[in-house]
Design a protein around this nucleic acid. Structure first.
Lengths: 274, 274
DNA sequence: GACCTAAAAG
DNA sequence: CTTTTAGGTC
């Protein structure tokens, strides 16, 4: 049994949009048994909290904190070590009139482990540029800035991860030439995310890897994965002290090769044990 | 490659309601490779003819004759040896005004192999006693009698098989005590089927096995298969010369034990090679 | 309980 | 393409 607060190996935090915990449970539990991950942040669980398979995670030595809804969205944090201060929704931090309707969809959960605050996000997809859902995405990102700014004031060590549904730079897309007005790459949403990062967050992946062609999501259609037509939209954004501390950030493409995979791959950031 | 008209082993004809050929294709092709079946009659294929996986059967040395529709019903005959005189629907034999609307649902296909005419049927379920669908089932069985009478005049060796959705006797049901007004066991549908058999057909299975508790269908619900709460509703009814010729008739329950099974098991009748 | 369709979401 | 829903069949 693993459960010590201090571990003989580096601490790992992972994010993975699993596109239905019901369908993907075997992949997720197998992956947790093959990798020494301390905290796994899941998006698109797609179940109400009562239907989340808590027991399957307890059986392999993990506890789960869930914040879900029927059919769509839903986030969860899976942890070997007990988590502190689990907070669900923007309204756990922000005033109700600031949040408005943005908590109707379950997309935000955060918790504290040791001296690190981990935020797990499922940013709205936005459908297409200029649509109502696009406006919702921009409003959501603006609210996220306020949310993270308050958290950062409380926790200098902030690890913000999840499915951001935004590829910040052209090198994060398989072919950016025709994507200027494409959802996940348009100027307004990139700017909205840059404003979020402006509070003092940096991309853990780009600390270690400058090359293009590194992706975390491939469309199910058109054999995109086989042809590596992907996007890097799943991220770990770190506050300065954590950015300095991070010793690796990698994308594990192996689960994307399995039968009936999620369309996303997990992204792992690693810290030394103090 | 097998393909000789004369075979060094007995000839086998099987019937199997596979409840979607799309979902069950792996079970069906595996079963054909594990069993020396000459003709396999399928019901509830649930695909239009253009979507039937012909190639998968050709790959294992079988040809398929299909008569399907979208979403519901649908029958097919799978054969190692080429089939002669394939006929689809009642209207291939009966006058259009006799058939009426009874060919709108694809439930009848027949073909000739050697000196035997094989008829493959998916009899309407009938929903509940007294319903509109029940009346349709009775009308359909009356039409079937005319259809088979004409075929029998042409082919003295008639093997009529399929999912009849009728358990003729109480020993064909796990507990008949409360089934007198149950669909598949009510007096009117049993009488309608008896009238069909009256043209000169006998139950191949009962030539060899008198015991109760022998079933071919178990409801997916209430763990019916595990508890053997089944019905014998899939049959081979044979004209006199074939009834004399038959050397076995068995139900293969093994496929019902697999993952994601059909709710029906195949039933096989065997004839000596002349 | 396991199939089917259809639409919505990604 | 894959997932979800709801309504229908058996």
């Amino acid at each position: 049994m693993l459960g010590d607060a201090t571990l003989p190996y580096p601490m790992q935090v992972a994010t993975w949009n699993i596109n239905s915990i019901r369908t993907r449970l075997p992949h997720v539990t197998q992956w947790l048994q093959d990798h020494v991950v301390d905290v796994l942040c899941l998006q698109e669980t797609k179940v109400i909290d009562g239907d989340f398979p808590l027991q399957a995670f307890e059986d392999i030595g993990y506890q789960a904190h869930v914040y879900g809804q029927k059919a769509y969205n839903g986030v969860a944090m899976i942890s070997r070590v007990p988590l502190q201060r689990v907070r669900k929704g923007f309204a756990a931090i922000l005033a109700a009139d600031r949040v408005g309707d943005l908590d109707a969809q379950k997309r935000v959960i955060s918790a504290v482990i040791g001296d690190i605050c981990i935020v797990n996000l499922y940013v709205p997809n936005g459908a297409s540029v200029g649509s109502q859902k696009y406006d919702y995405k921009l409003r959501w990102l603006h609210c996220l800035r306020d949310y993270l700014q308050q958290l950062l004031a409380e926790y200098p060590n902030l690890n913000v991860c999840g499915d951001f549904n935004v590829a910040l730079e052209d090198r994060d897309i398989y072919d950016a030439s025709d994507k200027a007005n494409h959802i996940m790459a348009s100027a307004a949403e990139r700017q909205a995310l840059q404003t979020v990062l402006g509070i003092g967050l940096q991309d853990a992946f780009r600390k270690f890897t400058a090359e293009p062609g590194q992706f975390s999501w491939w469309d199910y259609r058109a054999a995109s994965f086989r042809r590596n037509l992907g996007w890097r939209i799943d991220h770990h954004y770190l506050s300065d002290p954590l950015y300095e501390r991070a010793i690796s950030c990698t994308i594990d493409v192996e689960p994307r090769k399995l039968e009936k995979p999620s369309d996303h791959a997990p992204v792992i950031v690693e810290y030394p044990t103090p």
